[in-house]
């Protein structure tokens, strides 16, 4: 699997996938719908799929001395690596905003959602949806990706809108907690988001492996 991942990183990936990891830093921006950063990270990954398709990457990979399912696993490993790198940047922003900048007026007066553990959990969920809808959708054919990506965009912005709106609903203000307020709830929501990311990704990968076995390349 290490060789497959190396192939993904050095041959298949678009440089934009790496550059767009920096959109994880949107979690530092006040007055900005921070979860949109996940969309841009996904857009960077999408570019790699486009580059790979132009390079006959899937056929090339399927001819390497690996099981066909490892082609799929390699692609998921690459996608997860980019997502985790972005999540790391987001986590850095969250921790800094929860500690050093927890009393910063520019963040306190922010009308949009705060960068806290709930936001990080929501980012995990969006990346999970990307893996399910886009990556899983791509492996239905191993060449069509427009429809899965458009479907993902709709789903992602729906989640972003809901996540942004939730803390305005009476009784749910704790979702927008600052510092260590409601830390139990916040950590629970992060755990739920992370668990959903892992579960959705694993299920999507298994389904994609099974589908890829039946595709004529």
């Amino acid at each position: 699997m290490r060789n497959v991942l190396r192939k993904e990183l050095r041959l298949s990936a678009s440089v934009l996938s790496y550059l767009f990891i920096l959109f994880g830093l949107t979690f530092f921006l006040p007055g900005y719908p921070i979860l949109v950063g996940t969309f841009f990270v996904s857009l960077g990954i999408f570019q790699s799929f486009q580059t790979a398709r132009e390079a006959n990457d899937v056929v090339f990979s399927a001819l390497l001395p690996i099981a066909k399912r490892d082609v799929v696993k390699g692609k998921y490993a690459f996608v997860c690596l980019i997502e985790c790198a972005a999540l790391l940047l987001m986590a850095l922003a969250v921790v800094l905003r929860m500690t050093v900048f927890s009393r910063s007026p520019v963040y306190r007066t922010n009308a949009l959602m705060n960068a806290n553990f709930f936001a990080l959990g929501a980012a995990c969920l969006i990346f999970g949806l990307f893996n399910w809808i886009f990556v899983g959708g791509f492996f239905k054919t191993a060449y069509r990706f427009a429809r899965p990506f458009v479907t993902f965009i709709v789903a992602a912005f729906l989640v972003i809108a809901v996540a942004e709106a939730l803390h305005h609903i009476p009784g749910l203000a704790a979702l927008n907690a600052f510092g260590t307020q409601a830390i139990g709830l916040q950590l629970g929501l992060l755990a739920a988001g992370a668990a959903s990311f892992v579960l959705i990704t694993v299920l999507s990968c298994k389904r994609a492996c099974a589908r890829f076995e039946t595709i004529d390349l």
């Binding site: 041959l11 390079a55 990457d57």
Partner: peptide
């Protein structure tokens, strides 16, 4: 395969 990658890089992978 990989039209914009150098042959050396393809082989290395």
């Amino acid at each position: 395969w990989y039209p914009r990658k150098r042959i050396r890089e393809i082989v290395r992978v």
